[in-house]
Computed example of a mutant assay.
Amino acid sequence: MDVWSYFEGKPEIFAALVALLVGVGAVLGAKIQANGGRDQAAAAREAAKIAAEAQHVAALWTVRQVQVAEYMQRVREVERLIERLYTEDSSNGELEARLGEAEQAMDQKQAELELIASEAVVEAAMKLREAVWHARSYAVKTGPLRYAQLVIYIQMDSDDPGDVAIAQQAREAVEELHAAKRQGNRMEIERAHRQARVALCEVEAITNDLASSALPKFAENGWLLEQDSGQFSLLRKMETLVSAAREMLRSEDNVAPTVPPQRRWWRRAA
C-alpha cells in the first residue's frame, strides 16, 4: 500500500498533514528570513566600522602631512632670517627680533608635530631644531662681523683707488685690534680699538652702530673666521626630516592611505 492509498477515505488526516507541513514551512521561512536579516545587519555594522577606520586613517594622514609641511616652512623661514644676519646690517636689533618671533612659531609647530607624527619624524625634528639653534647662535655672534667684511670686500673691489685704500685700511685696523687683544695689553687694546673704529666708520656703508657691533667680534676672531656656521648641518638635518616624513606618509607607494585588513563577520562566527 502506497502513501496515497493510505490517505484515501481519510480526508481529515490528509488535511491535518497539509496544515502541519505548511506551518513547518512558514516557521522555517521565518527563521531563514530572520537569520538573513541578522547577517545583513552584521555586514552593515562591519562596513560602517571599516568606513570609520578608513576615515580616521585618511584624516590622520592629512593632519600629519599638513603639520610636517608647516614645520618645514617655519624652519626655512628661520633659516632665511639667519642668512640675512650675514648680508644685512642688524645692529638695530630689528632682524634679531624677527628671528626670535620666527623661532617661537617654529617651536610651536614642533610641539604640535610631536603629538601627531611618528617617532622617527619627531626625532628628526628635534635634531633639526638643535641644528637651527647652532646656526642661529653662530649667526648672532658673527653676523655683524660677516656683514662688515662683506661691505669692506665690496669697497675693495671698487674702481676708485681712494675707496680701495679706505677699505684696505679698515681690514688692517681690525687685524691689529685682534693682535692687540691676543697680547692682552690693555692700553694697546684701547688704542687699537679706537683706530679700528675710525677706520671702519670711514667705509661708506658701515654705520657707527654696525662698527660697535662688529668691533668686539673682530677683536675676538680677527679677520678670518672658522667656517663652522652650522648651515651644512642644518641642510643635512632637514634632509633627514624629509626622508622620515616621506616614509611616514608612504610617499613612494603612490597610493591613498589604507586601512589594515579586517576580519569579516562570517569569519568571526568560527
Rank of each mutant, 00 (worst) to 15 (best):
G23K: 03
G36C: 06
A124P: 10
E220G: 05
I50R: 15
R197D: 09
D163N: 12
A192S: 10
V57K: 06
V75L: 04
G29C: 12
P161D: 04
V122L: 01
S137L: 15
D2W: 13
Q231W: 07
E247P: 00
R236L: 14
Q108F: 08
A58K: 06
S233W: 13
A48L: 15
Q149F: 00
R264T: 07
E123D: 10
L81F: 10
V24E: 15
I189E: 10
I152E: 10
S213K: 06
M248L: 00
N92V: 09
E239Q: 14
D228Q: 11
R136I: 03
Q65L: 05
L235Y: 13
D2Y: 14
R268I: 00
E46R: 09
K217M: 02
A139G: 09
E123A: 12
A105Y: 03
G37Q: 10
L113Y: 11
W223V: 01
A139T: 08
L150W: 10
W4Y: 15
L95N: 09
A173M: 00
L150T: 14
S233A: 15
Q155A: 08
N92H: 12
A15V: 13
I116N: 12
G23P: 00
A48I: 02
A44T: 11
A16C: 02
I154V: 09
V198R: 11
A148N: 09
A199H: 15
